[in-house]
Write a protein that binds this DNA or RNA. Structure first.
Length: 710
DNA sequence: GAGTTTGAAACT
DNA sequence: CAGTTTCAAACTC
């Protein structure tokens, strides 16, 4: 770790980065997974720190920290106040300490004074130094933590400025994001009392109950928050869990945001009542949030609605200013951006339904998402998992990639109307589209969007899919799964799949973006999985095929009953017959984080050699992938058997096409390298999209409980 | 940026 | 399973 830290953060390393065509492997720290129920709690005992630049005073409830445009931190009360208990804080820190006390370690033993930067301001964060998110729940990202620490150490003398090294790194790497924010977030998670900490919870509950009761009476409630400024109303409209607001916790928002909206600090706002009210409301989430079950979430929702009614539109509007960026203003194209990530803009679903691309892709929403009331965040891990369970209980393949691998033969390119030459991806939509008006020629059509032709399974009308019309041999030379099946067996052996669709030009925008291309040094990136994926990005798109799709993000679920049909489907899925949700080249960095570092393999996925696997977590009554003590997924060991059995079963897709497992022996994948030299560790283990953030998970919780916990 | 269209997802 | 509603992305102006 120390070596990593030293090397990774050293100026030399950064300099090398500028010289090397090899993209630095993204750290795992930025990845946030949905740990299995059995996985180590997101809340870890490891102490997190964050840089001074983004210092967040968890102790001082009187110190709302506001981020200014120059990345400095304004802490009105910090100037003349000290930490409540600096010694205590310092003793718990694992690394550098800002001499001025502006940097602190998070302490889950401490009170719930939490402060969060407004993570929603993507624009702001672009020029923030940020780095690997310290997410891991098993310590796999400690290297990132160390990196962070090292970074911090370099900036001791400039607590409010970006560390020199970091600045260099930023300029060179460009995309390091929110190291501090993420650290803070994680720390918050750590700090937030939860059901796992009955004492804390009880204490908080007491406050909460009091607050709520007062609130419901319509009276103002002072929920032990600082009277000062900086209390952000992020949670007001979105009813963010108050754990981030209570007790002086302030969700930070950018000054720029305030300026932009000509807003005053809440404390100065005539709506202080609102602030308090909201705070009180939010407080009730302190002990419920991510750890609450669907029922409690309903209750929260109820309360939220109740409170919401007390806010007039003006207030709400005002509140929104303080909260997450106005989606109308900040809405980003859902299509992947330069980061290869999608952004969702969910407003009503809390990002807990398949409507949400992020959720559907199995990733946490990113800060850059413009969603409202998002629950698809690490803080709500349990909620997310429960939701997934519910959805998967209805459709075990709900989270399976929508595009099924097709031919391994390079499809024929085609010249589009605009003169662009595109090559359709080999495969078909799992369920097929149902287009009526778009003639499958617009991105409304999932097939078209996925760059695949329509298949017999589609129920589209007037199909004119550029990549293949239903019932007509596609450009890829095949239409249905029958033809696909003929090639599936070759999938793993086919270099095309291994090397990725880069071999052919895809019309998908992501494919044209260098960052989405397969890394030049896939083996390097793959081999570093779990070690340095701090900047990992997940391409949440559900349609993009990926050569690395054989490396499923996490273990798939299984049907509640040993339904052969589904089982087989999942097997196929796990075997890589499905295209995954990630863009080519992304997995090495984005998947890697899901591949626990050696020695901790599966830990991040909640395997831990336990009988309880993420599979069961996700609703599967019958674990699809049992992890034995040797950390070898059952699927890997049984794969050969499966290969031989090659049972033909109907897919759950409307196509009812039969899917045969690939010939390749999965254990070969799971243990070593393939032709390409890549490590394919665990590639066949999980079938479902990783529950990781596209970029960084959203920072603070700012959201009401999911409407319908599905 | 606002409004409309579209089709998947969710619901009944 | 079909019809309807809801939703968010895609699209248009």
């Amino acid at each position: 770790m120390g070596l990593f830290c030293t090397f990774q953060d050293s100026p030399i390393f950064n300099y090398i980065n500028t010289l090397s065509p090899i993209k630095p492997v993204k750290g795992t720290s930025e990845i946030q997974v949905f740990p299995g129920l059995n996985s180590p709690p997101l809340i870890t005992t490891s102490k997190r720190i964050h840089t001074p630049r983004r210092s967040i005073d968890l102790k001082s409830s009187d110190c709302p920290i506001l981020f200014q445009e120059d990345n400095n931190i304004a802490c009105p009360s910090q100037e003349n106040s000290s930490l409540k208990n600096p010694e205590d804080t310092l003793t718990k820190m694992t690394a550098s300490v800002n001499p001025e006390g502006s940097m602190e370690a998070f302490d889950n033993e401490d009170d719930n004074v939490l402060a969060l930067p407004n993570h929603a301001e993507q624009g702001q964060e672009d020029h923030e130094l940020s780095g690997p998110k310290l997410v891991d729940n098993d310590g796999k990202n400690k290297s990132c933590l160390q990196s962070n620490i090292c970074e911090n150490l370099t900036s001791v003398d400039q607590p409010y400025d970006q560390p020199l090294v970091a600045q260099v790194a930023q300029s060179q790497l460009g995309k390091r994001r929110r190291l501090q924010f993420e650290a803070a977030q994680d720390s918050i998670v750590e700090s937030v009392p939860c059901s796992k900490d009955p004492s804390n919870t009880a204490a908080i509950s007491e406050v909460v109950e009091s607050s709520v009761s007062q609130t419901t009476r319509g009276s103002r409630v002072n929920v032990s928050k600082p009277s000062g400024i900086g209390l952000h109303l992020n949670s007001i409209v979105n009813a963010m869990p108050l754990r981030y607001l209570s007790g002086g916790v302030k969700k930070l928002t950018s000054i720029s945001s305030l300026k932009q909206d000509n807003m005053q600090l809440p404390s100065a706002s005539p709506n202080s009542n609102l602030v308090e009210n909201v705070s009180a409301k939010s407080e009730e989430y302190v002990h419920q949030t991510p750890y609450s079950n669907a029922e409690s979430m309903k209750m929260i929702e109820y309360q939220e609605k109740f409170d919401q009614r007390s806010l007039n539109s003006e207030q709400v509007e005002r509140v929104e200013v303080y909260g997450r960026p106005n989606p109308k203003k900040k809405r980003k194209k859902t299509e992947s951006n330069g980061d290869g990530c999608k952004y969702c803009n969910c407003k009503k679903t809390k990002c807990l339904k398949l409507y949400c691309d992020c959720f559907a892709a199995g990733i946490y929403c990113a800060d850059s998402c413009s969603c409202q009331g998002c629950f698809n965040r690490p803080e709500y891990e349990n909620t997310v998992l429960e939701t997934r369970q519910l959805i998967e209980s209805r459709d075990p393949l709900a989270f399976a990639p929508k595009i099924v691998h097709g031919s391994t033969k390079p499809p024929r390119s085609q010249i589009l109307d605009d003169g662009d030459q595109v090559t359709p991806l080999a495969g078909r939509h799992k369920r097929g589209c149902n287009c009526k008006k778009s003639m499958c020629m617009k991105k409304y059509c999932e097939c078209y969007q996925a760059n695949v032709g329509c298949s017999e399974g589609c129920r589209c009308e007037g199909c004119q899919n550029t990549y293949g019309i239903k019932g007509v041999p596609s450009m890829a030379g095949e239409t249905g799964m029958e033809s696909v099946n003929e090639n599936i067996g070759d999938s793993f052996d086919d270099k095309n799949l291994i090397e990725g669709p880069n071999r052919v030009r895809s019309s998908l925008p992501e494919f044209h973006k260098p960052h989405n291309l397969s890394p030049q040094t896939p083996s390097f990136q793959c081999s570093t999985h779990g070690n340095d994926a701090s900047e990992a990005r997940i391409f949440p798109g559900r349609y993009v095929t990926s050569p690395e799709s054989e490396c499923p993000p996490y273990v798939t679920t299984t049907p509640k009953s040993p339904n052969d049909s589904v089982q087989m489907d999942e097997e196929s899925y796990a075997n890589g017959e499905f295209m995954d949700d990630f863009s080519p080249g992304e997995w090495s960095s984005t998947r890697a984080p899901y591949l626990p570092p050696s020695g901790m393999r599966f830990s991040s996925l909640g395997f831990h050699g336990s009988s309880v696997t993420p599979v069961s977590l996700f609703g599967g009554a019958k674990p699809f992938c049992n992890i034995s003590d040797d950390d070898t997924p059952t699927i890997l060991r049984d794969s050969s058997i499966q290969q031989h059995n090659k049972v033909k079963v109907a897919s759950s897709s409307p196509n009812k096409k039969r899917v045969s497992p690939p010939r390749i022996r999965l254990h070969e994948l799971g243990s070593s390298t393939l032709k390409s030299g890549r490590k394919f560790i665990l590639k066949a283990v999980s079938s479902f999209p990783p529950l990781t953030p596209c970029i960084d998970s959203k920072q603070t919780s700012n959201h009401p409980p999911p409407d319908d916990t599905l």
